[in-house]
Structure formats: C-alpha cells, structure tokens
Design a protein around this nucleic acid. Structure first.
Length: 303
DNA sequence: ATCCAGGAACTGT
DNA sequence: ACAGTTCATGGA
C-alpha cells in the first residue's frame, strides 16, 4: 500500500492505470444505496475503526486519491486503517496488465475495457456484508435487492448524521445473530433468505466463519468448497464473495443473469447464452474471470 | 397478467 | 453426477 499522511488528510497512490471517475460511475449505480454517497466529485463513506466513527470524504487529486475527514482528524493509526480500507475497496493490490493484454484480444471484452479503462473491481471488504448482500440478491431484481438492503441497514445498522446527511454502517453479525427470522420477514425477506442471513451471522459470531480463515486457505477450490458448505451459499454466491471480498481474480459467477444479459447485448444475440457457451467463450479469460465479469457488469449501465 | 430477476435446496433418477 | 421442481417476492 502506497500512501502518505498529510496531517488533516491522507493521500493514496494507486497504480497508474487506476481511474477514479470510472469507479464513481459504478458506485453511483443505485439511488437507493445508503452505504456510501456521491456528492459532486466526492465519495463519502462512513467506517467504524477501533470503535470510532470515521467519515471519509474521498476525492481525486491528480494521480492520487485524497481523503479528508470531515468530522475530525483521527489518530495516525486510524488514518492508516482508513487508507488500507480504501486500498482493498478499490482492489488496488491487483496488477491488471495481464488482464488488459488478454482483454484487448477478446472480441467480447475489447470495447468494454477500452471504454472503461482504469475501472477496478469495487469490493466489499467486510465478509458479513459481502455474504449477506449476495444472499439478498439471489434470484431477485437488483432494484428490489437494494430495497431489501436499505431496510435491513436502516433497521439494524448504526448511523451518523453530519451536516444534514445520514451515513450508515452495515449491521454487524453479532446483531443479526440475535434476531428472530420473523423480523426479517416483516422487511419482506423470504423465509429462506431470512434463515440464510441469520445462519451466516451466527457462524460469524461464533467464530466458525471468518475472513481471515478463508484468506488463509489460499487455494481457490478449498475456499469455494468451504463457502458452499454454508447453507444458502451455492456456486454463484461463493464466487461472488471470492470476487468482491477475497479478491480472487479467477472467481467466476458464471450463472449470473447480469453477466448473461451483458454477453447477450454485447454480441447482439437473440437469446441469453447458455452456460456451455459461456464456458467456451471464456477459455482465454482463465485467471481473470472476475475482472471480465465485472467489466461486463459495468457495460450494463450504459444502455 | 405474465415473465423474470446479480439462485439455492430439494427430489428423483 | 445430473436434470427437473419448488421456494419466494417484487419490478417492469
């Protein structure tokens, strides 16, 4: 991680191919999003670090990411953790030359990576949030998924209001582990999703499921198997979490209908491609399936 | 109304 | 291992 403490603000130095504006477009895709806000050219995000609310005002300054702290300047160690959060959030450890080399030769990806060069996978660093959001999004349209997430966060998350804007934190697993499934039914979760989300919360509360343990078992297949052993987590959810939280560039939610829509549109097909067809056309994505998928998702927001 | 949406578990073969 | 069925709820 490359960063610099400048007193009341910090600077983060991303790879040269990073494009902050492209990432902002993706972050702005839903007007129901309440876990971050975009105002003008700035991205606002509330974190809780060492028990302390830390509001980030994130902007671009030439080649660097500039982060200010509107509430108050935090201690140096907290500033470092905030920088680390952003580093992971924008997947800045990833070296993308290999991906771009591959994508420039791929008819399906070529135009998209050209149009959105510098976009990175916008992650979900917190494991519980990544899993709960994936479960919420299973088999429902994104609009409704955002509605459910908003209700969930406003019911169980902490918030802070600053200068008239309210910023929210995603609920902690310890909170959700204690609630009754009927409470989630009132928010219009299905019975199964209510069970799944509470089950994941309990597994995390008890320490059976941690991000650290998953990251420790490096092998893709091991992690995928571990995740799929959890009730409510199928192949799609496991790959989604490995892509958005665990930073596996080869994670591939191949059954994703958004991916299917993007491919259909990009190739001008009459129907959505089959899984077998996608396997065929993604042979050369090997190692970069997550980035290929993410760029295809990005292509959905311009037609 | 009808189809479908960033699926998963269950059941039967 | 694989295919078909059920679950579940709102958006367009």
């Amino acid at each position: 991680m490359k960063w610099d403490d400048q007193g009341s603000s910090i600077k983060i130095f991303p790879p040269l191919d990073f494009n902050f504006q492209e990432c902002l477009v993706f972050l702005a895709r839903s007007d129901q999003e309440i876990l971050h806000h975009i105002m003008g050219d700035y991205l606002y995000k509330l974190l809780k670090i060492n028990g302390e609310f830390v509001l980030l005002k994130i902007g671009e300054n030439e080649q660097s990411i500039q982060v200010e702290f509107p509430i108050r300047t935090p201690a140096q160690s907290i500033k470092e953790q905030a920088a680390a959060y952003i580093w992971k959030w924008f997947d800045l450890d990833q070296e993308l030359e290999g991906f771009y080399d591959m994508a420039n030769k791929d008819k399906l990806l070529k135009d998209i990576v050209h149009n959105h060069f510098g976009l990175r996978i916008i992650g979900i660093p917190e494991l519980f949030q990544a899993m709960a959001w994936a479960i919420i999004g299973q088999q429902i349209n994104l609009t409704f998924a955002y509605t459910l997430k908003k209700r969930f966060v406003e019911q169980y998350g902490e918030s802070l209001t600053y200068e008239g804007n309210t910023f929210w934190l995603f609920p902690e697993p310890e909170t959700i582990a204690k609630i009754d499934k009927d409470e989630l039914l009132k928010l219009q979760f299905s019975k199964r999703k209510a069970e799944y989300v509470i089950g994941v919360a309990k597994a995390m509360e008890s320490g059976q499921l941690t991000k650290e343990a998953l990251l420790h078992q490096q092998d893709y297949q091991q992690v995928h198997d571990s995740l799929m052993a959890i009730r409510g987590v199928g192949a799609w959810t496991a790959d989604y979490v490995m892509m958005k939280c665990l930073h596996y560039p080869n994670a591939f939610p191949i059954a994703d209908v958004g991916l299917h829509q993007a491919i259909k549109h990009q190739l001008g097909l009459e129907r959505k491609p089959t899984i077998a067809e996608i396997e065929e056309m993604s042979i050369y994505w090997e190692g970069w399936q997550a980035y290929a998928t993410f760029y295809l998702w990005r292509s959905l927001y311009e037609w």
